[in-house]
Nucleic acid binder design. Structure first.
Lengths: 204, 204
DNA sequence: GTCTATACTGTGATAGAC
DNA sequence: GTCTATCACAGTATAGAC
């Protein structure tokens, strides 16, 4: 007999329903706001009654937890893709990863609020849902240290980009004012922490 | 007869009740979160039933509007006080105003969320409530331009500080990690935009 | 196992008595 | 101006059909 994994059609269907519900929850969150999302709206979008959701998620916060995990897994995998084709110059590499962070955040307000802001007061992500977020931050800090950036200076550049994202949503949603300030901001920071300019030969 | 303003005891009492309600709303917002504040909690704190609030505010959002205006008026007046005793060196002056901004934001999460973040999806401040906020931003930009800072670079430093505030609340609430990064961050920016170091003589 | 039906509590808001 | 009563709708939970 071949040692291949047996398909569990019941489990597959269950998982597929969970994903459908999460997809619907994202749609509703984008339309009516993350915090004001209602289970009735989510249920009706997948053709169910609200109480039926409880067969698949233990609570509304469990749905948020699934969304939180999805969002960070998506960011992690897209970050890995970006990192795979990173420029040799550290400064250019930082610009690229930070622009990726900025654009991912700016593409979806509900997702950004869930991932990075504590607007859901009684929601705390579970350890498993939090794991991809921890991995992303660790990878980013390690990359910085590999090119001589201290942890403190790394915190500053992340704060800088997250501030640009903030101001984008607060003052210019849909515009490109803050996207246009991104490279100049990163250059300011890179100059200060001693990263060589992009037209200089790579070290070693 | 003396031409003194007549006291309107009815209007005075009305205004005082409104302030009482707003004070109670702040307390509740700090305890249970800005978005999950309930009218019943606010009412019971001032010894009323929830519907009675509607004699003083047209809706829950009207209460948020009053709070929004209070918060920005408070920030405006404290900013004027700070500006009155500003150091002569532009760099030191920036450090001081930005630290004031940071500390005001970090002192009260509910207030910061109401003032600077769009977590209340269906709340839009009225023009009158928005006015002090506009004045504060205008004053700040004008000060920057007076010492040779472009509007774009001014947007960057505001984004930088707002990012530090963000990260403080997200990663180190109650701690002082990000407060400790403030001066170094401002110095990075000041170096990049060409503000002279603090130990240099003031220009002219 | 998954769904429908139904009920419970709590929310913002309104109507009308006093 | 404050109250009681009430409404529509939210999240949550259980019972029971299939």
């Amino acid at each position: 007999m071949l040692d291949m994994p047996k398909r569990d059609r019941v489990a597959e269907r269950r998982e597929s329903t969970r994903r459908e519900i999460l997809d619907a929850a994202w749609t509703v969150a984008r339309e009516s706001g993350l915090a004001t999302l209602t289970l009735r709206d989510v249920a009706s979008r997948v053709g169910m009654q609200a109480p039926s959701l409880y067969s698949h998620f233990a609570s509304k916060n469990a749905i948020y937890d699934g969304m939180f995990r999805q969002a960070w897994e998506e960011f992690e995998s897209s970050s890995l893709a970006v990192d795979a084709a990173l420029p040799a110059h550290p400064r250019a590499a930082f610009k690229q990863t930070m622009r990726h962070f900025f654009e991912f955040a700016v593409a979806d307000l509900a997702r950004y609020q869930l991932m990075n802001q504590r607007i859901l007061v009684d929601f705390e992500p579970t350890t498993e849902a939090f794991a991809p977020s921890v991995r992303v931050v660790e990878r980013s800090v390690q990359f910085g240290q590999a090119v001589g950036i201290s942890v403190e200076d790394h915190l500053i550049v992340i704060a800088l980009v997250s501030g640009l994202i903030n101001q984008h949503y607060a003052n210019d949603p849909g515009g490109d004012t803050y996207a246009g300030l991104l490279d100049r901001s990163i250059d300011m920071w890179a100059d200060a922490v001693g990263l060589p300019p992009e037209d200089s030969p790579p070290a070693m």
